[in-house]
């Protein structure tokens, strides 16, 4: 797959925009998934995933053809997600209207806090729960956990994507796992 991507990128570098469409097709699901797990919201995830692909296109000249395109696009997407999470924090009001809706406030985005009995948890609800718990992780743990367990990347790739030493990645994964263990032990 990487060889196809490289030849497409070579075409993009010559200015052929359509070749980029094929690159987007190959990675859109993975990038969207990464953004969704990071942000916990489809609407925002789509925004950020789009933004990531557009940024990658605009900066394609700075992409090193000897490296993996996937790592590069993941890196752009992860950084954009983290930026979004940090920006979002101060203006996260519960009475704020959800963007793109009418009269729907953030209250509706919160699941009811009465825990459901285990046997009533449908698979969809379980997924929502898990997503909610992932969203509770601090962003530095969230990114490594998502890259490792949802995108199924190796520790080395994660360290390259996040531009962090391998040791730091390991520590963050360990802490992230411990945090999830605490949060999910009673599910």
């Amino acid at each position: 797959m990487e060889t196809i991507v490289k030849s497409r990128i070579a075409q993009v570098l010559k200015g052929d925009q359509n070749a980029y469409g094929e690159v987007v097709e190959l990675y859109k699901d993975k990038v969207f998934q990464l953004c969704y797990r990071m942000l916990g919201n489809r609407h925002e995830a789509e925004d950020i995933a789009q933004e990531a692909f557009i940024r990658a296109y605009v900066n394609i000249q700075s992409f090193n053809l000897n490296k993996k395109f996937s790592s590069w696009i993941y890196r752009i997407a992860t950084n954009l997600c983290i930026d979004r999470i940090r920006k979002k924090k101060p203006d996260y009001f519960l009475d704020a209207e959800v963007p793109g809706t009418e009269g729907l406030t953030m209250y509706s985005q919160i699941a009811s806090d009465t825990a459901l009995p285990e046997d009533e948890l449908e698979s969809l609800e379980l997924q929502e729960t898990v997503q909610k718990e992932i969203s509770k992780l601090p962003d530095k743990y969230r990114s490594v956990i998502v890259l490792k367990y949802i995108e199924e990347l190796s520790l080395n790739e994660i360290s390259e994507i996040l531009d962090l030493p391998l040791g730091t990645v390991k520590t963050r994964i360990h802490r992230g796992r411990e945090a999830l263990r605490q949060q999910l032990r009673n599910v």
């Binding site: 097709e25 379980l126 898990v130 949802i150 032990r185």
Partner: peptide, 23 residues
């Protein structure tokens, strides 16, 4: 168990016309 839960989250797909919007 925590890992299994995280991994079990279904693989979601990008919305329709995602690529077209980017292009």
């Amino acid at each position: 168990k925590a890992i299994a839960f995280v991994q079990s989250t279904a693989h979601i797909k990008a919305p329709d016309n995602f690529t077209a919007k980017i292009m």
